[in-house]
Amino acid sequence: MFAEFLQYLLSGITVGAIYALAGLGFAIIYNSSHVINFAQGEFIMIGGMATSSLVAAGLPMWAAVLLAVLITMLVGVALEYFAVKPARNADVVTIIIITIGASIFLRGMAQIIWDKESHSLPAFSGETPIHLMGATIVPQSLWVIGVSFLAILVLGWFFNRTLFGKAMLATAYNRLAAQLMGIRVKRVLTASFGMSAILGAIGGIVVTPITYTNYEAGVMLGLKGFSAAVLGGLGNGMGAVVGGLIVGVAESLGAGYISSAYKDAIAFVIILFVLFFMPSGLFGKRGTERV
């Protein structure tokens, strides 16, 4: 009974960690530019696909990972430079279409560069399951959870302790004031896309040995990441992480106890329910709109 619950919980935390990374990616970009980047899921896909093909081409794992992260980051920066920046002052719908267009474009490119097949990666430290109070967990899950946790810690350090991180936070808080203080807002925007891409790539790489990846794998992951970010309250980094974990765990418990067919629906039911009662998410800024 408890073992079963623990099993669901563990797998929920594993996917939840990926959602958290994706949600964090949404939050970082949203904070610096108020853009919702619907191509966030494609960063995850590119990270996994690139690593897998580089390993297949004979590169050692570490080199493949580094290179894949770098490639994804460049894609993120290019996305900002070519698609988002030129539409700076457009309204919400326009920018939504642009980033959705970007996601379709990247998916199409992935299908041309690679193919429509599933790709995998060897698990980082073997496949021998670890037993834990009646539940089992594959070592790769620990990698997923550990690496995500580490990435979140590094980000926390970056935003609170480094000058550039603080500059990014300042820009999020008040763009004009930041600009007047001499912060180069343009660089902050570019950096936010680069960083979100890196986060996505990392998530994609660690999760590929478990879930496999293909050119379409980013769609659902991206939407779940968006749910995580909205659930936590847009622009709230820690909110996105908590949101990701909630979505992951709820999904896993729901699939286990209620219906596995409705696994993907659960995230959206939760999000609707929360938004009905808290229109700006769990930890979103509340307050009276100024008139």
């Binding site: 909205v230 067919a261 409705y262 629906a265 959206f268 039911v269 999000i271 938004l275 009905f276 229109p279």
Partner: peptide, 27 residues
């Protein structure tokens, strides 16, 4: 309840409704 939401929150909620309908039809 949905149209109380604005901007990206509204996008999220309508997206959710659509996906739930899709999954129900599939299931």
């Amino acid at each position: 309840p949905i149209l109380r939401l604005k901007g990206h929150y509204l996008a999220m909620a309508t997206l959710g409704i659509g996906i739930i309908i899709y999954i129900v039809l599939n299931t």
